[in-house]
Amino acid sequence: MHRTLNLILLLLALASAFALYVLKYDTRRMEARVQGLQRSVDKLEGEIARLNGEHAHLSRPERIEPMARALGLAPIGPRQYLRLGASPPAVAEAPVAATRQR
């Protein structure tokens, strides 16, 4: 009687030990995964910051202005404004006249 009970308890103990082992192993694996993900998040955030900086550097006005001027663009002049509803030919004329000025 006692013997059976002991056996069952022993088996239970073994089973729970195994379950615990599996659980612990899983946790550890997941922790590693979380860490990995965190690392890649950090890395990507750093990458985003780097690209933002690079974007700002490449789109700095000092660099864009000569490019725009080379394309025939210029700062908008006071004669290029028209009231909304002005006749279409006038709208079409203004920018053309401005590029010709260059």
Partner: peptide, 18 residues
């Protein structure tokens, strides 16, 4: 800041003055 006087409309008479 918008300019007060635009002379482009002189080229097309009849357009409202800006």
């Amino acid at each position: 800041v918008l300019p007060r006087l635009v002379q482009a409309h002189q080229a097309a008479p009849g357009t409202p003055a800006f």
